[in-house]
Write a protein that binds this DNA or RNA. Structure first.
Lengths: 366, 366
DNA sequence: AAAATTTAGCAACAGCGTTGCGTAATAGGG
DNA sequence: CCCTATTACGCAACGCTGTTGCTAAATTTT
């Protein structure tokens, strides 16, 4: 949850979230681990740990005997103390994932959506899918909320789908409100790629630097994680990476411009030349690195994963040879750690992140 | 100043900075203005205003008589209560600017730097320039520090120039340390374009959204302001916007790739076809908007300002026609409000921002 | 058995924004 | 002229935060 002013409740939430981030990224930890990782004083850590233990979010897991002195109490996150459900709404399918506090996917399922589905279709499919998940698993108040990741354009702040590409019936739909009323749970609405990059960031914790998640799946998009939070841009419209021009005299794109990355890439892919398609994507990725200087590039999306070795090789090759070489300029390239579930799982983690992640302070606009 | 943990001193600094941001962007304000602008409670605002008044950062400026009731006290920032000096280090020149707390430039001067100047050359030129400024103006402890904006690559966090493009003698130079010792003032080192965008953001306050400052001056770079702070990337190397490929089969660039924005742009410019050069730049700008969804595009740099009407027209045209039209998707395009001083002034404002700006909370890496 | 070392929490504290309420300063109505 | 409504604003008490100073507990080493 972002807020505009800082008060003592913000302090509590912030420092508590720092400890949770440690717990999420290591199997076990002790008080001194947290002290060095966060910079909090030992006494402050004691108080935070006491609170988290009382809330059932962490628990002790034995002791560690150091060479000398009193043994240290070892703690661990309680992964199944909180859950969230994430939904990936694509053009023809709905994918749901049940994710625990540690970012692990417990259950995932895909169901078809009717061609040109309406908001009502989606709400019912969501309800049915969630019912199916909770049929053989009792949430008992541990379900934090539902995250929805879908194609844009949309308005994240107001929970509004503005105009989902290629879908009629989706103009200015207040999906967050509708879903909250229909499901009786808090709902978080965001672009698919933004949800995806959140998944990678949440699972990697504080060590995760600036990153992009590239998604190739009936279109090419990018989700950005910059400065410790998702970057959505001024109108939740960041990530239209497929519509950046890489070939001034290239073929005309559906967006009206010439030589967009997406149209150049797709022509190569449709001609069966996956190697060239991958190289074109890699040029775009290097453009992003030159512009934004990212620490991580994560590759995802059904069309990419189908030829994952070719894409991974091409992007790695380009990142290591086309960016000016320097020992300090390192970027790691990897396939999404969650495969096809990354968007749905990330949407769930956005809900967990809002509640248990490190909060941001966003000054009021105006 | 960024920190890793939140304590009560952070609260004070943060809320105080919110009030300062209001004071910086309006001529005068009263308590109720701050309450609605920040979301702080009236009582909290009273306390903050008392502290800021005691520090001499703001002062009362009469009263406003509302239609009815007790008159409200009107406050204003005291612009000359704090100053900073900014330096723009280019390949052949050093530009200095004296900037006050309100972001106004009081004095600016350019001096030549010897071809292939050394760190010692620069330190002496800085010292001489600062002495000249303080000759006819007595700082009396109001000088907060010195900001240096220069070409990269450099390491902002450690104050290290790694390898300034086209300058020998500049490999792994700990410039921040050297300058602090030589000048006896706190020094802030950053890339030129990042300093530049900070100038625009500082002067516009909380209302300034995600933005890029495009600089065309013996190379093309971009400085980013995202989510309320400068975006520097994982290795202070963001902004190499000129080295993004826009023409896959284009001419070879000095960086080794083909069809970089910079080489395509420069060929047109060198051929005297400024209109085409501007259109090429505009394509790159639209690429940035598609990727990052920015609210502001600011144009700067000597080579651009020389033909500012052509560039402004081309970029405005492209932004308004090549981005999918939608009434909610608005981006304003403007020339830098500070002209040739923007980098130097921005470097100064980075110093002021570190002290009096809204602080960020950056979790410890590791 | 005594000393050294490490872990951990209790208790007092300073400082933050919040809340409740009283007071000052003004305009308008009787 | 006085009273009331209205607006501005701060004092005082409060709950809460992390911090500091110190004590206690648990263990190994001497």
């Amino acid at each position: 949850m972002t807020r505009t002013t800082a008060d003592v409740t913000f302090l509590r939430g912030y420092n508590q979230a720092l400890v949770m981030a440690v717990g999420r990224t290591v199997p076990t930890f002790e008080r001194s681990t947290v002290v060095t990782a966060t910079g909090l004083t030992p006494q402050a850590v004691s108080k935070v740990i006491a609170r988290l233990t009382a809330d059932g979010l962490i628990r002790s897991a034995g002791v560690r005997r150091p060479g000398i002195g009193k043994p240290a109490v070892v703690y661990e996150l309680v992964p199944d103390s909180r859950y969230a459900i994430g939904a990936h709404v694509a053009r023809r399918t709905l994918r749901l994932a049940l994710v625990d506090l540690a970012g692990r996917v417990h259950h995932s399922a895909v169901s078809p959506l009717p061609r040109d589905f309406t908001p009502e279709h989606l709400l019912h499919a969501l309800r049915d899918g969630i019912d199916a998940i909770t049929a053989d698993w009792e949430p008992r108040g541990r379900l934090t909320g539902v995250g929805i990741g879908m194609i844009g354009p949309l308005d994240h702040g107001n929970g509004l789908v503005r105009d989902a590409h290629g879908l009629r019936h989706w103009h200015d739909v207040p999906l967050r409100e509708l879903a909250e009323a229909h499901l009786g749970l808090p709902v978080h609405l965001d672009k698919d790629v933004t949800a995806g990059v959140t998944a990678e960031a949440w699972r990697r914790g504080g060590r995760f630097g600036d990153a992009v998640l590239i998604m190739v799946e009936s279109g090419i998009g990018g989700g950005f994680w910059l400065g410790g939070t998702a970057h959505r841009g001024a109108h939740t419209n960041a990530g239209e990476f497929g519509h950046t021009v890489v070939d001034l005299d290239g073929p005309r794109c559906v967006c009206g411009r010439h030589g967009c990355l997406e149209v150049v890439h797709n022509r190569a892919a449709e001609a069966g030349d996956i190697a060239r398609a991958a190289r074109v994507l890699a040029v775009g990725v290097v453009n992003l690195l030159q512009t934004l200087d990212l620490a991580h590039v994560v590759l995802a999306g059904a069309d990419l994963l189908r030829h994952q070795r070719a894409y991974l090789a091409a992007v790695e090759e380009a990142v290591h040879t086309e960016v000016p070489r320097a020992d300090w300029l390192v970027t790691d390239v990897a396939l999404s750690s969650l495969g096809a579930d990354v968007i749905a799982a990330g949407a769930a983690m956005q809900v967990l992140d809002r509640q248990y992640g490190v909060p941001g302070l966003v000054p009021r606009q105006g």
